[in-house]
Amino acid sequence: MKQTQLEFLVGAFVLLGLAAITYLTVKLGGGSLLGNDTYALEARFTSASGLNTGSNVVVAGVPVGRVEAIRMEPSEYTAIVTFRVMSGLKLPTDSMASIKTTGLIGDKFVALSPGADETHLEPGARITMTESSVDLESLIGKMAFGSVTEETEKAPPP
C-alpha cells in the first residue's frame, strides 16, 4: 500500500473517531457545557431517598443544573442537597424545591418552583421551602394494610 493512501485512510479514521469522541463528551456528557457558569444552592429535605449526585435539577420541566452532593445534617436528621444551576438563572428567595419522579418508577430529580420575591437567592444560599419525595413504598404499604381506607372512614361524613 502506498504511504499516501495509508495516511489518508488513517486520517479518515481519526476524524471519524474524533467525531464520535466529541459526540460522547459534549452531547452526551454535557458536563463541559454547563462547565464553569454555574452557582451552588442548597436545599433541606426531610428525605432525599432516591436522589443521586448527578440527578437533574429542573425549572418548569427544563434541566437547569445537576445535584452535586447529598449529605445528612446530624443536628436535625435531615438531608442537605447541594446542587448547581446555570448562573444566568435568578431564583427568587421564596422559591420552592421538591423532589419528584419521572414516571412511576423513574429517576428522581429536583424541581424548582420560582416564587414571587423581589430578592434573589445568592450563591450558596439555602432554600427552606421544600417538599420531599413521595415515598411510594410507604404509600403502597398504607394501601395494602388498609390504613388509607381507615383514614377515610375516620373522616367525618359529609
Binding site: 460522547l24 452531547k27 452526551l28 454535557g30 458536563g31 448527578g54
Partner: peptide
Amino acid sequence: SVERAVQMQDVTECF
C-alpha cells in the same frame, strides 16, 4: 432519555 441519562462521569469512565 439517552442525553439525560449519560453524564460526564460515565463518559470519563468509558474512556
